[in-house]
Amino acid sequence: MAKWIPLWLHKLSSPPVFYGFAGKLRPWAITLAILLGMAALYGGLVLAPPDYQQGDDYRIIFIHVPCAWMSLFIYGVMGIAAFIALVWRIKLAEVVAMASAPIGASFTFVTLVTGSLWGERMWGTWWTWDARLTSELVLLFLYLGVIALYHSFEDRRQGARTAAFLALIGIVNVPIVHFSVNWWNTLHQGSTIRLLGPSSIAPSMIWPLLTMMAATKFYYFASLFGRARTDLLSLESGKDWVRQIAENEVRP
């Protein structure tokens, strides 16, 4: 055991401990996701003023941009989990990586659909092969590839490790998606929110956007915890701790 990793982190990676931990946090994450999501929708669709250039059509930003951030964030989490799964063969890391893929794919799909609707209204086209749009589509295919590879093996742990390899290699696409608007001339506009320097969006519009970003994060954790719990139960179905849970369910 490496000395620099705290003991509680080692404990958390054991399936029964994580099962309990995720089960406790999940209701909180769901509640926060719903409350923040509703506040953000109200702020974005009702309170925020129309844009000077795009009128009311810009309001799709409150769905499109948080989903786009999540599509990259989840890929990052999946890539890191895949790396841990490949080197240390930790079962929980495999589960987290494989449970993240469908959630990330959904966010990517929503990003592409809402972006397409927005593009039709503002640019005048549903789709164009510029660098941002193309790299985001590649991201969707990477997610789908990871999901497909995972399910094409009889042995689930073997499938998880093979798919983790694809997930890890695909991580090079994440910076490409993010920087595509700076590296190439694209139809897609540049980043509005900057970590360094001022953001080019009015305060009355930025708070619903950031609230929605928090809501999507909580939704992801809630969904991930739920999926990881069921996966752990079926992977460890022969173990004592699972039998214990099953017996408690039968005889309350």
């Binding site: 640019w123 005048g124 506009q189």
Partner: peptide, 18 residues
């Protein structure tokens, strides 16, 4: 054969822009 409009990454209320 096709003309697309590009918008920038700035979002603000009309009054502020004015």
């Amino acid at each position: 054969t096709e003309v697309l409009a590009k918008h920038d990454e700035t979002y603000m209320p009309k009054e502020l822009k004015d």
